[in-house]
């Protein structure tokens, strides 16, 4: 049987700067502000008690129209101890967060994806460019206010009208 996860240890070490997320049942989950994110990740990675050496996933979430609008969600895994942990990092407008590419190389593409899809800027990222969309693309596709069919242009005649150009967007119907 696995030992219970020492969540209190993280809270104590960060002295009020890290809080436990309520209503999350599938794995331990902590909330941290962007300015403490790197310190927390470094602590979790190098502390003998946790050994969270595997950064599984980084994803952005857009809670439009709720505030704070954006959130970064990190999923960590400890290969030796078998624990999973979720870190949530709420972001205000304009969304900026520190990069963690110097801690895990894998964060590079994950952060580029979050930038591409949500427009979240990662400060200190070595190569922050769009990864899926082409470089000239305008807008942030995964944001909640981006229409499903995209905006109308010469390549996309069925897209939604841009806001302020009359007509309700078709994309909202579907």
């Amino acid at each position: 049987m696995q030992d219970p996860f020492p969540l209190a240890n993280i809270i104590d070490n960060f002295n009020g700067r890290v809080s436990v997320a309520a209503n999350v049942t599938d794995m331990p989950c902590v909330i941290v502000n962007p300015q403490d994110l790197v310190e927390l990740c470094l602590f979790l990675r190098d502390n003998e008690m946790f050994k969270f050496n595997f950064m599984a996933d980084i994803g952005g979430v857009d809670f439009y129209p709720n505030l704070p609008r954006y959130q970064l969600v990190y999923h960590l895994y400890s290969i030796s101890l078998g624990w999973r942990l979720r870190i949530k990092c709420p972001l205000d407008e304009p969304p900026t967060a520190p990069t963690i590419t110097h801690l895990w190389t894998t964060a590079n593409w994950h952060e580029r994806e979050a930038y591409d899809m949500f427009g979240i800027v990662f400060e200190g990222h070595p190569d922050l460019r769009r990864i899926y969309m082409w470089q000239e693309f305008e807008g942030w596709p995964m944001r909640r206010d981006f229409p499903l069919r995209g905006y109308k242009d010469k390549y996309n005649p069925f897209g939604a009208e841009r806001p302020g150009e009359g007509k309700s967007p078709i994309g909202d119907i579907l």
Partner: peptide, 13 residues
């Protein structure tokens, strides 16, 4: 990459 990007995550929503 991205030449096959279909926006699966957006479609899921």
């Amino acid at each position: 990459i991205g030449l096959l990007h279909r926006g699966t995550e957006k479609l899921c929503e």
